[in-house]
């Protein structure tokens, strides 16, 4: 159970880090990033705190590195399913033909 919780909070931390990087990458003068940035940093902090409760013997940095790596590993397992889904949609689009008959 602790492994699943670590993965859950590790994925939260990973997503929060990705969102922060995305906001830095896509920043422009019309951007109002404060609420989204605060929300992401809050999620990251809470996830790290929750993981430190589960893995008490590890430092914060070790917890982040371990849990985020394990989250990446388990999320990569879904990637083939996503790829197959997109391929099926694209296959349907590729063979679409004009419908005959009156409009």
């Amino acid at each position: 159970m602790s492994e699943l919780l670590t993965l859950f909070f590790g994925s939260m931390a990973l997503s929060a880090i990705v969102i922060v990087i995305h906001m830095i990458s896509a920043f422009h003068p019309y951007h109002r990033p404060t609420p989204t940035l605060v929300a992401s940093l809050l999620i990251l902090s809470l996830a790290v705190y929750a993981m430190s409760m589960i893995n008490g013997e590890m430092s914060y940095m070790e917890i982040i590195r371990k849990s985020v790596s394990e989250s990446i590993l388990s999320l990569l397992n879904i990637l083939p399913l996503i790829y197959i889904s997109i391929a099926i949609i694209l296959a349907r689009v590729s063979v679409s033909q004009r419908k005959s008959g009156p409009v």
């Binding site: 492994e3 699943l4 919780l5 993965l7 859950f8 909070f9 590790g10 994925s11 939260m12 990973l14 997503s15 929060a16 969102i19 989204t36 929300a39 992401s40 999620i43 996830a47 394990e70 989250s71 388990s74 999320l75 397992n77 879904i78």
Partner: peptide, 18 residues
């Protein structure tokens, strides 16, 4: 299956909050 579902749930919760 369980680990993937657990990770996906974590991502989903974060995206919903975002």
């Amino acid at each position: 299956l369980a680990t993937t579902v657990s990770s996906a749930a974590g991502v989903l919760v974060t995206v919903l909050i975002y």
